[in-house]
Amino acid sequence: MSRVEDRLAELGLSLPEVAAPVAAYVPAVIDGDHVQTSGQLPFVDGQLPATGKVGAEVSPDQAAELAQRCALNALAAVKSVLGDLDRIEQVVKVVGFVASDPSFTGQPQVVNGASEFLGQVLGDAGVHARSAVGVAVLPLDSPVEVELTVRFH
Rank of each mutant, 00 (worst) to 15 (best):
T105C: 01
Q36P: 02
D124Y: 11
P42L: 04
G96M: 12
G113Y: 00
V110T: 06
V110R: 00
M1T: 08
K93P: 00
V78K: 00
L15H: 02
G134I: 08
I88G: 03
G123C: 08
L41N: 01
R3A: 14
Q68T: 14
A76L: 08
K79C: 11
L11Q: 06
P27W: 05
S103F: 05
P16D: 02
D124G: 05
F104K: 01
A132M: 00
L8V: 11
L138T: 06
E65G: 02
R130T: 11
Q68K: 14
V22Q: 06
V92L: 06
V94Y: 11
R69W: 01
Q47H: 14
L15T: 10
Q62V: 04
P49Y: 13
Q40Y: 00
E116Q: 13
E17N: 08
G46N: 07
L148S: 05
S131W: 07
S142H: 09
Q107W: 03
L75P: 01
R69A: 03
G32W: 08
S38N: 12
V127M: 09
A136C: 06
F43Y: 09
C70N: 13
D61H: 11
M1K: 07
S100R: 04
A56L: 11
F97K: 12
N112M: 10
L15E: 07
L11D: 13
